[in-house]
Design a protein around this nucleic acid. Structure first.
Length: 257
DNA sequence: ATGGTTGCTTAGCAA
């Protein structure tokens, strides 16, 4: 089973690119983030013609997440369901081929110590509670998405330039570690433990040509899924060319399920 | 050199 996660930064603008990418890479499951559109605007028909079912949690202007799959996603859940009044569509979960798949768009955080940064920390705490309450670590589960956290120093090409930002600081690295301490495994680092790799490059200041980026998009696996993870990679090619997203897709491949 | 990008929505915000 080939699984991908991709922050597309507007599905409306990126639709043709996404369809071409699906036809070429042929993943079994795709977690999308930053759709930036309501459910009614989602291109269900074109996605179906490409051979995928879709579970969608859209929102006007901002956020919006989805799960595409060869088979119909079951038991779809939108949001945390924790009673918190939250208008932001940042989490969708569904069962595909016996695997609980989560597509998550973590808050960026704006500036350190801002209201948005507080929301980011709260949101990560709510996600941790969500994983615990649903006992998701004890079953085949993949937490996929734009974490807006580069978990290690080597996950920034220019660590000195990024240190202290909302994407790359001690507090966020510690938050990410909490997920690993629960038993989740960073599937990319399973197969590529050393070296700098990026999944996101700012649109500004020629960041991509200069390879000034961060690895902030991740596929974390529960222990039973980590055991059958046979490969991982970042699809850097998909960041090139005309009208790219600022994120590259990330893949993980599994031998079972 | 106090800049630079993109997308949504309508000049300002978010990333």
């Amino acid at each position: 089973m080939l699984v991908a996660t991709w922050n597309v930064n507007s599905l409306k603008i990126r639709k043709e690119r996404v369809l071409a990418w699906l036809a070429d890479r042929r993943p079994d499951v795709v977690c999308l983030q930053e759709l930036k559109g309501v459910d009614e605007a989602f291109p269900f028909e074109e996605i179906r013609q490409a051979g995928y079912h879709a579970a969608v949690f859209g929102q006007r202007t901002y956020n919006g997440v989805a799960i595409l799959a060869r088979e119909e996603p079951a038991e779809v859940e939108r949001g945390f369901g924790d009673g918190v009044d939250d208008q932001q569509a940042r989490l969708i979960a569904a069962t595909v081929a016996g695997v609980r798949v989560l597509s998550a768009y973590m808050p960026n955080g704006g500036e350190v110590d801002s209201e948005k940064y507080e929301y980011k920390k709260e949101w990560l705490g709510r996600l941790k509670t969500y994983l615990e309450r649903r006992d998701l670590l004890s079953q085949p589960m993949l937490l996929c998405g734009d974490f807006n956290i580069a978990p290690e120093k080597q996950d920034a090409s220019r660590p000195e330039e990024w240190e202290g930002t909302v994407l790359f600081n001690d507090e966020m690295r510690a938050k990410f570690q909490e997920f690993l301490q629960m038993g989740l495994v960073d599937t990319f680092r399973m197969h590529q433990p050393e070296g700098n790799f990026n999944s996101w490059w700012d649109y500004r200041q020629l960041a991509f040509p200069k390879n000034n980026g961060l690895r902030i998009d991740h596929i974390l696996a529960s222990p039973s899924m980590a055991r059958c993870c046979i490969a991982s990679r970042i699809d850097r090619e998909a960041r090139k060319g005309k009208l790219p997203s600022d994120h590259a897709p990330v893949f993980a491949e599994f031998s079972a399920s």
